[in-house]
Amino acid sequence: MSKKEKSIDLFFTVIMTAVSVIYVYPIFAIFINSLKKESAIGTNTVFKMPDTQTFAGLANYSDAVSAKGFIPAFLLSVFITVTSVAALLVFCSMCAWYIVRVNNRLTKLIYGLFVFSMIVPFQLVMFSLSQTADRLFLNSPWTIWLVYLGFGAGLAVFMFAGFIRSVPIDVEEAAVIDGCSPIQTYFLVVFPMLKPTLISVGILQTMWIWNDYLLPTLVLDIKKYKTVPMLIQYFRGSYGSVQMGPMMACIMLTVLPAAVFYLVLQKYIVKGIAAGAVKG
């Protein structure tokens, strides 16, 4: 590498460092404020570091956890995300395999509907979806995964179908010759081969469902059940009386698991995004 190129790269490193600092700053600002006493948090002191007078330790965090109902909301979010994503992975991959391998007019029509559903904005279906969920008693945390399965199926089927098309059929035929039934063929031969796409789809759907605010708000009874985004919006809604300290602690407690999830699975997330885009 020439000297000139080296200095260009150094210049870029400096630029990107500055960009990264700007990127992290908003979260850092929320973090330092979540450590301050309530009286010390105001719009004109947001960027001041806490000092001995204003430092509140983890008081806001214990307040958020104990008084603000963060733990039930967190567990509810985990439960809804895990059940919904698991259902999406199993049922959508099964359906996509059938659609690809039994290539007839009916499966083409069904596939077309799935693709169409990816484009339709949520606002078009939001009212009748919440009413349908009520009528069919799907409006509880135990059954909301069925709503997510139905509304989120489009992208998952689309990505699975794209991958299955690239998988040679020979292995499956060999399994059939060896006496496997289609169900055995699917679960013993095909499903394990889908691993990379299972991970990609799982991550994309987890990011969506974990952060989703509107669908659970409309489907669940907010007085009884709050997911994390619902909890945060709920406290924000009551403007004047909102306590900023515990609020910011809540935000940090939401950002933290997302950050851990990201750092642990970064390799797969990056691949998943790229794969989702190429097929999109």
Binding site: Y98, T132, L149, I183
Partner: peptide, 15 residues
């Protein structure tokens, strides 16, 4: 087995 479960959910959740 393969399509109907998802199709049922899709009918409720989208169609």
């Amino acid at each position: 087995f393969f399509v109907l479960p998802l199709l049922a959910a899709f009918t409720v959740g989208f169609i």
